[in-house]
Design a protein around this nucleic acid. Structure first.
Lengths: 337, 337
DNA sequence: AGAATATAAGCAAACGATTGCATAATTTGT
DNA sequence: ACAAATTATGCAATCGTTTGCTTATATTCT
């Protein structure tokens, strides 16, 4: 029934040679004669020999594993990012250890602890909404474990990051609305985290400024992304004297909750109210009234680029290299439906 | 900048005791005196000592890691299952290594290879659509690495599995439709895999038999889950002389593609045609015309139960135990919207 | 006090692979 | 044919931790 897993020791015994010779033969070391090399490789294949990774990991002080910490797998956005990460990792013969913070700081730290104990070679992370300090990540770098932040990047200096700029696309989105005649565009923003750059809002301001449309601060409202709060703030918006004719929604969750509620209020979508959003759900194509445009952030790309950056950091042992690699900013794109 | 990671050896040197004493002190071994124990634990804490997992893994021949192989993370169903798995794993201080087969057999095997090489202690798997033999899994069990199949379970004997029976709920779903007066219910089934039990179809037959409604084989059609094919088979159904008034859809992908296309054909949803489906997308609540009912399969539960079963297998070293544990079948539930 | 017992700590091997250095075996040059 | 150069192989330490067995120290009993 259960077989013993073969080791180089057994190969060495059967061939009456030393284990070092076997090891070198399997690695095509030049100082091993052709005959021996062939013999060893043949026997190894016959015995289904496979090097014991745990032994190698231990000896080399490397696990060939990277940790990937995400807020959530439910968000399609992150599931897509994983694909990019996995692909690059696979190309480099690395494994990926995934952990979900569920937007909980304590859990994020706990996951990081487990990963550190398991001696991952590097960490990729999209921080939780609660994360307001990156002390726990800095601690990793003390032990020479590089950390690359992606997508949700803390707004602090001297970190390695990959993220997608939303500034230009936000401006594009508003230009689109302005061009369609909208003058009162509300922005339903997500939870304010001091640590994430607020490019949506910056773009919102800039687009207004550029088009010489005055900002009405009461059109900027905040939701915690829950359905209830989104509905409440939307209702408040529609009770304004100067109510908006269009909505810039923080993401598709907010957009869909808004659209659903608007319909309940008997508003005509795309007539009384238009919605533009930031894409995280591809499902919107099944809706009768999807947002008229979305900002696409190319999660797969972001994941891949972040992983490539991490491998660059892993390759460079000297601390000077690490400082030089820096940050990568990708471009988002407005997709008009 | 970069610190060296402390080991028990250093602790031993600083306290002028042996490493075995340190090791035992940290493990609360009874043969270590209280004074020494305290000293060691205090110093270890001060030095931020953390046991080197790679060394332990190597020594113990255990990685405290389970492999989880899924067809796809895009399907919300599997993302939810992961949560159940993660939770149970965390409770047992285990890590989870996730791999996506993308419904590709070759990839499934490759992932399994990597996991075997990394010496995972056990494997959880929901097989790919292409998987028509389980040889690659049986090979694992030869090395005493238990395998638990879940959700998509191959239809072969002598395996450990956790899955959710769809039989009863399928009957419930059809009863619901029959009660609403439908007499011609089409079934759009997914790709036929010889290795997965076809409970949907069995339920479909049984419900008809029980209600003495004759089966019309032309109402049973097959899609490969692509939008194009789903639309084609639906169109063919609607061209029948005795066209159906309701559809039992293989899953929400099929259901939504069907509904979308029906609307394009100017059919009135829930009047000309009603749809019942198997839940994999919670998003359906945002639709104007969602399926009238869905069969819920409780992915989180399934994941958790499967992981518990795997741990049971890991705990029992004797091969007899392994045979006894067997299979777990959960119940699905019809949710009427 | 001296032997028997209980308590505390250390020695050394083991896990599987890698690798610098030494040594053995073979070939080449003269 | 013998030294020199080349090629092939082996020895042994190492990574950090665990653990069976031995030994040293302290306590208890008679």
């Amino acid at each position: 029934m259960s077989e013993k897993i073969p080791t180089i020791k057994e190969i060495a015994q059967k061939l009456n040679i030393s284990i070092s010779t076997v090891s070198r033969a399997l690695h095509d070391h030049p100082s091993i004669g052709l005959r021996t090399k062939m013999q060893v490789q043949k026997l190894a294949a016959e015995m289904n020999y496979e090097p014991n990774q745990t032994a190698i990991q231990f000896k080399q002080g490397k696990t060939f594993t990277i940790g990937l910490i995400l807020p959530n797998l439910m968000e399609e956005y992150f599931s897509l990012a994983i694909n990019g990460v996995e692909q690059v990792a696979l190309e480099n013969n690395y494994n990926v250890l995934i952990g979900q913070s569920h937007d909980d700081l304590e859990r994020e730290q706990k996951i990081l602890d487990t990963m550190r104990r398991h001696r991952v070679d590097g960490v990729l992370v999209s921080i939780s909404k609660q994360t307001n300090s990156i002390g726990h990540f800095e601690q990793l770098e003390k032990y020479n474990i590089p950390v690359v932040f992606f997508d949700r990047v803390p707004n602090v200096p001297h970190i390695h990051s990959v993220w997608c700029s939303l500034y230009d696309s936000t401006i594009d989105a508003l230009e689109l609305l302005f061009k369609k005649g909208h003058r009162r565009v509300a922005y339903i923003q997500g939870p304010l985290s001091l640590n994430i750059k607020n490019e949506r809002l910056e773009g919102y301001y800039e687009a207004h400024k550029h088009n010489k449309i005055p900002i009405n601060e009461s059109l900027i409202v905040t939701t915690d992304l829950s359905k209830a709060v989104t509905e409440k703030v939307f209702e408040k918006l529609m009770l304004l004297k100067d109510k908006p004719t269009a909505i810039l929604a923080f993401n598709d969750t907010v957009a869909l909750d808004t659209i659903q509620y608007a319909k309940k209020m008997k508003l005509k979508i795309n007539k009384d109210i238009s919605v533009v959003s930031y894409a995280n759900w591809p499902i919107t194509s099944y809706l009768d009234y999807p947002p008229i445009a979305s900002v696409e952030q190319f999660p797969n790309d972001q994941g891949a680029r972040a992983t490539e950056l991490l491998f660059k950091l892993l390759d460079s042992k000297s601390p000077e290299d690490l400082v030089a690699v820096g940050n990568i900013v990708l471009k988002s794109k407005l997709i008009v439906h």
